[in-house]
Design a binder for these strands. Structure first.
Lengths: 261, 261
DNA sequence: AACCGTCGGTTCAAATAATAAACCGAAAGC
DNA sequence: GCTTTCGGTTTATTATTTGAACCGACGGTT
């Protein structure tokens, strides 16, 4: 791994629940020598990707990321354009909705919306990576990738995150085939016990599946009528976001989703 | 300059008017060997900071910047929180309003808002760097920096951008003193002929001046009543944004702005 | 259809930049 | 006042980056 990647990966340690990180902490987290970490942070800071709060204090993400994001959104409206749909989805289903995107071979949460319908809800405090094998979003996205990409992912070992996590590559392949046939994916406690979720794939302007839209709920509220409601709402919202992105649904998906309506 | 900075600086070549850049073009722009540029781009792409459109085509900013920006905004609401004020300012003055922030020793445009009042207006197509010596925003920000920072900037030679650009360091120092006394800065065609602008400094939670708020108009519309209106609106909006940012105005500025009202 | 320039991408020896351990002084905890 | 940890610095050693030349593919010209 090159130096540049090491520096960029430092940025990944900043999350909603850990927005401020000190030099020594970060060096430990990233398993880097403190001097190395310092030099990388200094370079990031010189370019405004991180900044220090007071004097000799912790680091946090800097203003440059805002500027870059504004440019990206100006060219490819993704997040802002999808937010209203995401919020409507949360409200409509009464559960937590979230949008994830494929970024450099890993699936990351890009945005989420809560519903006020219940006091208990699935919270999304971290901008953490969503494992392909254990989340409905991961399955939805993986199902619609190229064979090559899918095989690369499936050739790596999968951690057993809960007692319900499917880790067998053969069984996962079968589930992916099933997902392609249904047009949506489901996870029942595979990522976190007590959390069930459903997800649909999203497609960009080139017809590639570049993300997923999901609704996650406490297992206790996931009965059959609720599943039907969420499935329907997801397909509607998925169609909408794909359209906003200027993407087009593969014709078989379009058909599946129309039939489900 | 380290490898990391070289990679990060590649991102700076993406602007609103040049959102897609090919490998060879970028290598030329950044004055890098094509192989080096390719390796850096590959690392940036592996981390989602850039992406390629089709196959073997140009590069553009990637989705990772959105995720980082969302995190930054969650911790330090800057852009989103200021947008409504910025839009109101544009509408109120009938001219183009823009917000800039100090990022790693350079002042960059973070957001802008147009007014529909006139067909001719100052457009902000590029997210370019604002020169300290030739823009009202630059003067407003520089006036409120530490002596050390100010001296560093003033020790570098200034390009003569228009016939009205002030490039003499001594004269600039005098103007900065004047800006501190008035609580706002003005530029009459120093950056672009035919563009006059006025700006006020913005302050963050630690009392540091971290950006500026400006209104730019065609020179032909900048008469004395209009100047008064813009000055007043800027001070109002500046107070508001500083408050939203959790910052506090230096007492002398607060006094100046109150008296002007 | 042969030519030309340029594209994105690759190779490999040579050169340069990154690394890690030890070391600061300062501040915080005990 | 002792100990630990902090952010930051120094240094020789080491591994990575670099750049010229090269590749096949593509798009115009002639």
């Amino acid at each position: 791994m090159g130096t540049v990647s090491k520096a960029l990966e430092l940025l990944d340690y900043f999350t909603r629940s850990r927005p401020l990180i000190g030099l020594s902490d970060l060096a430990r987290l990233a398993d880097l020598n403190k001097a190395t970490c310092f030099r990388l942070l200094t370079e990031l800071a010189e370019n405004g990707f991180v900044e220090q709060i007071g004097t000799g204090r912790e680091y946090r993400l800097g203003p440059t990321v805002l500027r870059l994001a504004a440019l990206r959104e100006a060219q490819v409206p993704t997040r802002e354009a999808a937010m209203p749909v995401l919020q409507a989805l949360a409200q409509q289903t009464g559960e937590t909705a979230h949008l994830s995107m494929l970024m450099a071979d890993s699936l990351r949460t890009l945005a989420f919306a809560y519903s006020a319908a219940h006091v208990t809800k699935v919270t999304m405090e971290d901008a953490e990576t969503l494992p392909f094998h254990a989340t409905s979003s991961g399955l939805a996205v993986l199902a619609f990738q190229s064979d090559a990409f899918r095989s690369t992912i499936l050739s790596q070992p999968f951690p057993q995150l809960t007692t319900n996590t499917e880790t067998n590559p053969m069984a996962l392949r079968a589930r992916l085939t099933e997902v392609r046939g249904l047009g949506y994916a489901e996870s029942r406690g595979g990522f976190q016990t007590e959390v069930h979720s459903m997800a649909v794939p999203l497609f960009d302007a080139l017809g590639r599946c570049s993300g997923a839209l999901a609704v996650a709920a406490p297992a206790s509220r996931m009965n059959e009528p609720q599943r039907r409601l969420i499935r329907y709402a997801l397909m509607q919202a998925g169609t909408e976001i794909t359209a906003i992105w200027g993407g087009s649904l593969p014709s078989d998906i379009a058909t599946l989703w129309r039939l489900a309506a």
